[in-house]
């Protein structure tokens, strides 16, 4: 188990390398030259050359690449072109907001989705099952920004329970401001989690080992919650893991609707102001997060399914 974990962790290194390389070259291939897009069409060649030199764009691509890699290893991405501040500091100050939103909404999605999925699977075909399935479908087809606005209308304007914007200060203030955006994303994700839990439970329900457990005298409830659930969890964990990654990068809309600071907003701002070092750093960070979440999901597989264990 420990050997497998170490091997799996070591395997992330080539993955990270490939991802980072891809980001670097994709940004270089893009047609617009950062310097000329910053200075505009009428810039003088001198000014262009000066800016390129300042940005390090006059060096050969191979040199830039090596410098970039060194930067990634030191987690130093240079300075923002628009604010002039260190990108790493900026990211570190924004990362918690995005992470807390992603984690809180995944937590909400799991707390709502998994139990309802189990219940719907047990009551398959019954009226409650249909109700849950239809609501999950509504959740799945609802765009986050739309539900976000509805939530604001309902719980911030009509019933002023939660603030509609900003991030709040201190632990309590933070949670308080997190409530609506996290609920918005969490509710939407819970639809997927519920459907996966339900269908995965149904796949297991008629397996032979279920009959064996019942023939041993194990009560139906325990069979459902112990034997069947344990075997149904792999697809559920996969979906939750995938959701974390989409939530981290896809929180852009929610962050905009709720005017929350965060990486999504930073990346969008970087595109608008053509602040390519910031964009590059954001992309690298998203990649690292995706790779990390996949690592955790993989390791949890081997915990859940003994067959995967080496």
């Amino acid at each position: 188990m420990i050997k497998y974990t170490i091997r799996r962790i070591l395997w992330t290194i080539p993955t990270i390398f490939l991802a980072v390389t891809a980001i670097f070259f994709v940004l270089r291939i893009l047609p617009s030259d950062p310097a000329s897009s910053i200075l505009g069409e009428n810039a003088t060649p001198d000014a262009l050359r000066a800016l390129k030199e300042e940005m390090g764009l006059d060096k050969p691509v191979s040199v830039q690449y090596v410098e970039f890699l060194e930067g990634v290893i030191r987690l130093d991405f240079g300075n923002s072109l628009s604010s002039g501040r260190s990108i790493s500091t900026e990211i570190i100050s924004l990362l918690p907001y995005t992470l807390e939103l992603a984690l809180a909404s995944v937590l909400i999605a799991t707390i709502i989705g998994v139990p309802i999925g189990i219940y719907a699977a047990i009551k398959r075909g019954a009226f409650v099952d249909s109700i849950f399935r239809v609501s999950a479908l509504i959740g799945l087809s609802m765009p986050a920004f739309f539900l976000g606005i509805l939530m604001m209308l309902a719980f911030s304007l009509k019933i002023p329970l939660f603030p509609s914007m900003g991030a709040g200060e201190g632990f309590v203030g933070n949670l308080y401001h997190l409530a609506l955006p996290a609920l918005t994303l969490g509710l939407i994700e819970s639809g997927i989690v519920m459907r996966i839990t339900r269908s995965s439970m149904l796949d297991e329900l008629n397996k032979d080992y279920v009959r064996t457990a019942r023939a041993k005298g194990v009560p139906r409830r325990t069979v459902n919650l112990k034997h069947i659930l344990r075997n149904s969890l792999i697809p559920v964990v996969t979906v939750i893991g995938l959701n974390i990654t989409t939530l981290i990068s896809g929180a852009v809309l929610t962050e905009t609707v709720f005017s929350r600071p965060g990486l999504g907003k930073l990346a969008v701002g970087a595109i608008e102001t053509r602040d390519y070092p910031v964009l590059q750093a954001c992309l690298v960070l998203f990649c690292l997060l995706v790779i990390f979440v996949n690592l955790v999901v993989d390791l949890s597989y081997s915990y859940l399914n003994p067959k995967i264990r080496p």
């Binding site: 080992y209 009959r211 859940l304």
Partner: peptide
């Protein structure tokens, strides 16, 4: 007590 037909699938793979 009961013994079933399919020994390959009659035990829970996760325990």
């Amino acid at each position: 007590a009961t013994i079933f037909q399919e020994p390959m699938t009659s035990l829970n793979p996760s325990f």
